[in-house]
């Protein structure tokens, strides 16, 4: 299952120069003038952002850059002060979060949300969309939903075995380890047949061995035709799998581009190291080494 060979990167995604807010050849998500303030603090102020289709886009930036807030805004979990955004041409402005998910834009959470007192299989089955038995009245007539429920179960089991969780299917999700919960949350999100998967720090708190398998799963999503947008602090992972990198700092997008070039940009270095001018770039490379050794930064 190991997929250590360098993954196939999607290139040539943008039109014109790779500058913040640049146009993409085939954007899936387009956002304009998204602004969110908490009191006097401007958490997010994004002029223009396009997320390329069928590619893996990383959203990076220092703590407090507004990455998670932007995630919440784009998925309808929070409402911006101003701004419009659309998924494949469908406007998502002001659309409640559950409808955003129905349209195929599904998210995971930074703090994993496994449904503890439901079994792993129940967690998975909850993800499936358009279930006939989820209506109050039809729920009372098993004949209406039983067949569909069986199909959902087959699909869930297939996904669980792909994520190596099939042996745990009858256990409460609360009994899973932190890393297994991350896997479960990702697998559950896939049950919704998404077009755009938004992962909020999928690697946070996951050990290196599991990180590798999570990376493979993220790459698999692209292979299956999905688009991935993820927030991550781990530069190693970003460089390894991302086709495109968007860098945020203080609520704004400060740089965009393919991972190899964007990491060298002055704005990115400033954003990450701005408050520690005395420590040099060596700190960053040192961190990568620590992860390779098996520790956690």
């Amino acid at each position: 299952m190991s997929n250590n060979a360098s993954p196939q990167k999607s290139t040539d995604l943008h039109i014109g120069a790779a500058v913040p807010g640049c146009q993409k050849k085939d954007p899936i998500l387009v956002a304009d003038h998204i602004k969110k303030t908490f009191g006097g603090l401007t958490a997010v102020d994004v002029e223009h952002l396009e997320v390329p289709k069928n590619a893996i886009t990383a959203l990076i930036g220092p703590n407090g850059a507004g990455k998670t807030t932007l995630f919440n805004l784009l998925t309808g979990f929070d409402t911006p002060d101003t701004g419009t955004w659309s998924l494949m041409g469908n406007s998502l402005s002001g659309v409640p979060s559950f409808k955003v998910a129905k349209l195929g834009q599904v998210r995971t959470f930074q703090l994993t949300k496994a449904l503890g007192l439901l079994t792993v299989l129940e967690n998975m089955k909850l993800g499936a969309k358009d279930q006939k038995g989820e209506n109050l009245l039809t729920a009372l007539v098993p004949a209406i939903w039983r067949k569909q429920d069986k199909e959902i179960e087959v699909k869930a089991l297939e996904l669980l075995s792909r994520f190596k969780l099939d042996a745990k299917k009858d256990d409460f999700a609360a009994s899973l380890s932190g890393g297994q919960r991350k896997l479960l949350e990702m697998a559950r999100a896939l049950m919704t047949d998404p077009v755009l998967v938004m992962l909020d720090e999928p690697m946070a708190g996951v050990n290196p061995a599991l990180t590798q398998s999570l990376l493979d799963h993220v790459l698999d999503l692209k292979k299956q035709g999905m688009t991935v947008l993820f927030v991550e602090h781990d530069m190693h992972m970003v460089r390894h799998i991302a086709d495109w990198v968007v860098v945020m700092a203080e609520g704004k997008i400060v740089a965009e581009g393919p991972p190899d070039t964007v990491m060298k940009e002055q704005a990115v270095i400033d954003a990450y190291l701005g408050s520690h001018q005395d420590t040099d770039l060596g700190e960053v490379t040192g961190r990568i080494k620590i992860i390779k050794d098996g520790g956690q930064a």
Binding site: F77, F98, K102, K113, L115, E122, L126, W145, A189, T192
Partner: peptide, 23 residues
Amino acid sequence: SPWGRVIKGIREDEDAIRALGKN
């Protein structure tokens, strides 16, 4: 029923259920 499954899911974490497209 699947309806009950959603209800129990909401008890556990309603944001997670929202993120899965349930009202």
